[in-house]
């Protein structure tokens, strides 16, 4: 019998993942965001973009690591994809399983709701009255999803719509399917 994504995630996390102190990652990510805020002169819109870009770079390489460790087969529906992202992807890298929910009618949009977010531990946004409205602190995760999914022929858009750091009730990322990319044969290649 096929194992559920949750079982796969748990097993891979327990047996096939080398681990490191979470606080090292938390603090290191903090230093990245702080550095970017400094470099872009507190233009948080640009900081968001740069974080997304960095995430994309990570995503396009991370997918290989993911596939190698988990032996995941092709997802048949976008719903499967969402489950795998949450229960396996987030589990084996960040040891969290965000809740999948708020599906749109056409099943092309869902939310990942984060009960915990290791990136944002110890974090307070700058109280310049601007960051709370402009900065998406964990925006790197959006880029990671976008990059990783693109490598498996799934083009998505991902963005945060809520963040507890901004005083919202939850931290929520919205993922939208744009299209499934077709494998295209080069011209004249049979």
């Amino acid at each position: 019998m096929a194992r559920t994504p949750r079982q796969v995630g748990e097993e891979v996390w327990k047996t096939r993942v080398e681990k490191v102190n979470a606080e090292l990652v938390t603090l290191t990510y903090g230093s990245v965001v702080a550095q970017l805020c400094k470099d872009f002169g507190n233009d948080y819109i640009q900081v968001n973009e740069q974080l997304d870009k960095m995430g994309y770079n990570i995503g396009i390489r991370l997918i290989e690591d993911f596939l190698a460790r988990t032996n995941t087969s092709r997802c048949r529906t976008f719903k499967d994809t969402a489950e795998i992202i949450s229960k396996v992807g987030f589990k084996i890298f960040l040891n969290i399983t965000p809740t999948v929910g708020n599906w749109s009618q056409d099943n092309k949009q869902f939310s990942l709701i984060f009960d915990e977010n290791p990136l944002a531990d110890f974090v307070e946004l700058p109280d310049d009255g601007k960051a709370v409205n402009e900065l998406w602190y964990s925006n790197i995760l959006c880029g990671v999803l976008r990059g990783a999914l693109e490598m498996v022929q799934t083009q998505v858009e991902a963005q945060f719509i809520n963040d507890v750091l901004r005083g919202h009730e939850t931290t929520e990322m919205r993922v939208t399917l744009i299209r499934i990319l077709e494998d295209e044969m080069p011209v004249g290649d049979d």
Partner: peptide, 29 residues
Amino acid sequence: TIYDRNLNRRAPELSLAAFAFLFNEIVQY
């Protein structure tokens, strides 16, 4: 607030890969 959190909580773990990818981006940047 974050100040109410207990700092003595045993630190959880993450995958080394997550750190490696992040650090790699720092180096690139």
